[in-house]
Simulated assay, not measured.
Amino acid sequence: METEQLYREHRSMLIGLAYRMLGSAADAEDIVQDTFIAFAQVSEENVRSAKSYLCKMVANRCIDKLRGSASKRETYIGPWLPEPVITDDGGSLEGDPLSRYVHKESLSTAYLLLLQQLTWTERAVFLLREVLDFEYDEIAEVVGKSSVNCRQIFRRAKRGIGEAPLATPSLQGKTMELVQRFAEAMQSGSVPKLLEVLAADAVMRNDGGGKILAATKPILGADRIIRFFMGIQAKSEGAYSFAFTEVNGLSGIVTLKNGRPHGVMSFEVRDDQIVNLFYVVNPEKLTLLQADRIRPIA
């Protein structure tokens, strides 16, 4: 099969695998691009299944990347969050893998953080089985272990992940409603309304990566989260506004400062309240943010 045809057929899937492995869409794009360049030089007689072979190449490159960045992660300033991906293409970006790789079972920020707790091999096995629906024989070929061993690794990874929610339509709708109420309360500065949507023990993680002013520890409790946002708005020299969008398959918010994207918020919802708020303001993680996917709040 021609490399170009394989590229069209498998690119989105491979970017999805790499993004979930790494938590970085930019790195996922680069790895998949490098993989196809290298694959073009591979002899056909060494490839039984192009799909499995490509996944193996991507997974190995991801693991190499993770090994190389392990020390950076340990010294990362403040909470580390995955790079947010705007998955609301508005029908205008057909063919863009960044608009498709999260799919209908899209992984929320909370889910991606749970994946980070797995070992690199567990993460690869789990994603290939749970997300990409590979058979164990195929997974064995990718990770270089027996199918029996892969079954054991998957069960161990599944226990580690627990019952984290996927972005089902019901969760999507619930999140959308709460995000809208949260944004309206933020715009009006209504503390009582914010307290209605935030769980009393809600937690906010703010990822600035040392590149921009941000909380370096998780903020615990609805009262403290509200004070944080009110304080930021009061001290800011510019005007803050909000825009709805879809972040990693769920409703989210892009914060705008003087009309320009400043950060991305995503949420975890439970029992009709926001229990976790993830706020990425590290400019290095916002490079793929595209203005035409952002709908300002009227």
Rank of each mutant, 00 (worst) to 15 (best):
E4L: 12
Q5L: 14
L6F: 04
Y7G: 12
I31E: 05
Q33Y: 11
I37D: 13
A38P: 03
V42H: 06
N46W: 11
R48N: 15
A50E: 13
Y53E: 15
V58K: 04
R61D: 14
R61G: 09
K65R: 13
R67I: 10
A70G: 03
K72F: 11
T75R: 11
T75M: 10
I77F: 06
P79E: 04
L81C: 02
D89I: 14
L93H: 15
E94Y: 14
G95L: 03
L98E: 13
S99T: 14
S106G: 15
S108I: 04
A110I: 07
L112W: 05
T119I: 09
W120K: 06
R123I: 09
F126L: 05
L127A: 00
D133A: 10
F134K: 01
I139A: 12
A140I: 09
E141C: 03
G144Y: 02
S146C: 07
R151M: 14
R156P: 01
K158Q: 04
I161H: 02
I161T: 02
G162E: 02
G162N: 05
E163H: 03
K174S: 08
T175A: 01
E177H: 01
A183Y: 11
Q187F: 06
S188C: 02
G189M: 06
V191M: 10
E196S: 00
V197P: 02
A200S: 06
G208E: 09
G208R: 07
G210A: 01
P218V: 05
L220C: 06
A222D: 04
R224V: 03
I225N: 06
I226S: 08
R227E: 15
F228R: 11
M230F: 13
A234E: 14
S236W: 07
E237L: 13
Y240A: 03
T245C: 12
V247I: 15
N248I: 04
G249F: 01
G249C: 01
G252N: 01
V254K: 06
K257Y: 08
P261L: 08
P261S: 05
G263P: 09
V269N: 00
D272M: 10
D272V: 07
V281S: 11
D292K: 09
R295N: 13
P296R: 11
A298Q: 12
